[in-house]
Every structure is written in C-alpha cells, then in structure tokens.
Amino acid sequence: MNKTVNQKAWFLILPVLLLVAFSAVIPLMTVVNYSVQDTFGRNEFFWAGLEWFEQMLASERMWNALGRQIAFTAIILAIQIPLGVFVALNMPKKGFWASFCLVLMSLPLLIPWNVVGTIWQIFGRVDIGLLGYTLNAMGIDYNYTQDFYAAWITVVMMDVWHWTSLVALLAYAGLQSIPDAYYQAAKIDQAGRWKVFRFIELPKIMGVLMIAILLRFMDSFMIYTEPFVVTGGGPGNSTTFLSIDLVKMALGQFDLGPAAAFSIMYYLVILLVSYVFYTVMTNLDKRDGH
C-alpha cells in the first residue's frame, strides 16, 4: 500500500501538545504527587500511598460538601434549563426587539464572577441592600448571613440571574434554525402550543440543550467565587460547596495531601459525568442519522 497519510500534520500540532503539557499535564501531575505523599515541612516528602484517599473517603466533611454541591447543581439546573427555554420561546424572532433582547440577555454573562458576587452581596444586605431592606421592611425575616434558607435562596437566585441567559441564548439559537414549514405544518395538523413544543421545538433544540446542561453542570459543580464573595460558605458550613471546602483545606489549613486527594476525586467525578453526557449526546446525533 502507498503512503497516503501526510505526516507533516503531526508537526503542526506539536506546539499545542507542548502548551497543553505545560498548562495542564504538569500541574496535574504535581497534584497527583502531593496526593500520595506526606510532608512535615522543609520540603521533605514521604510516601503515603492511598492514605489520603482513604481519609477523604471516610471524611464526613467531604461527604457533606459533596451533598451540598449536588443539591446546589440539581436545583440550579432544574430552574435554569426550563426557565432558559421558556425565555427563549418567548423572545421575539426578528426585528429590533430581537436584537434588543439578545443584548439584554448577554449583559449578565459579561460581568466578572467576583463582581456578580459583590452585586448580590450588597443587593441582599439588610441595612443598605435594595432586596434585603425591602424584604425586611415588608416584615419578611431575611438575612443571608444568619439564616440557612436565606443564604441558599440568595446563592441560587444569584446563579440563576447570572447564567439563565446562557441557556436562553443557546436555546434561542436552536429555535431560530427550525424552518417555518414546520410551524405551518403544525397549524395545518391543528397541533396545540404544547404539541408544537413537544414534537417540533424540543426535538430540534435537544442537541444545544444538552450542551447547555453540560456547560451549566460543569460550571456550577466547580462554583467558587460567587458564593464565596456573598456568604463565605456560611452561615456555618451551609453554603460551603466543594471548591470552597477544598480551598479552605488546602490554603486555610495547609493540608496539602488530603486536599490533593480531594482534588483528584473531584476531577474524576466531573470527568465521569462529562463523559456520560458526551456519550448520550453523540448517541442522539447518531439516531439523527448524521
């Protein structure tokens, strides 16, 4: 057989490989290194085997943080995905108002994480915050620094405010690609609004919706800055999610070994879930016959 493959292509991707090696592989290996060793300072390390992993798996603190994390991610997905789709369905399809809505929707996405945190931190304050002050003036007892529910509601609302737009924009793009003929056929078939959504719109936006879910899952599962700025993980540990806990452990207490083991397990969970998503998505595509 003749050489039909152009080997030059390998040289072209070499820079990317090097870049990835420096930016991802080497730091990751450092973490792996920490996770299987112990140190008593002075840069001396001892082999610790899987001790840190065992310790972390047995740690109630980690399980609690994971529980909170799963609850948080589940809640925001359950709100953002339907809400985003609902918003997308009701956005104007063309003309001035369509562009206006698009700009309006992208605004929250352009604000840096820590600023979002600060905005909500002030917004919810009982003394000077618009939300906090108004609620209390109305006789509702709301204080996110002291009350468990108030803290969760604030953090969830903040995330919904920040990220629903992303879901809405993706769903909107998906909806725009549906040819008019489908809507007309549905009219002719006398399909109601729900059936139009169920049998035309939903199947057509399923692909982008999967991407939206995946992005929102990964992002919310790793959330750190915003809740940290607003509640600092409190009151108590009530909004201490995985990342916040990890940083407390690694930098606050300088337990590098357990923190490294923790990070690796954290990383594997995200990788696993993303992989499952990817498989589901490609299968959806295959059924489409592409």
């Binding site: 078939d189 006398q190 109601g192 049998f199 199947p203 057509k204």
Partner: peptide
C-alpha cells in the same frame, strides 16, 4: 387544507404511525 412542503416535514421523535395519526388525533 393539507400541505406538502419542499423539504420533508416530519415529526422526528414520533413513529411513522404516530406521524400519520397526528392530524386525526389533534381533531
């Protein structure tokens, strides 16, 4: 009226049977 378009318009997630039954069921 009924209309057939330039590009096939079918409800992808339904079976062929459900596709054919759709206009009748809606009525």
């Amino acid at each position: 009226i009924a209309q057939v378009f330039q590009f096939p318009v079918v409800y992808d997630t339904m079976t062929v049977r459900d596709n054919l039954a759709f206009p009748l069921r809606n009525r």
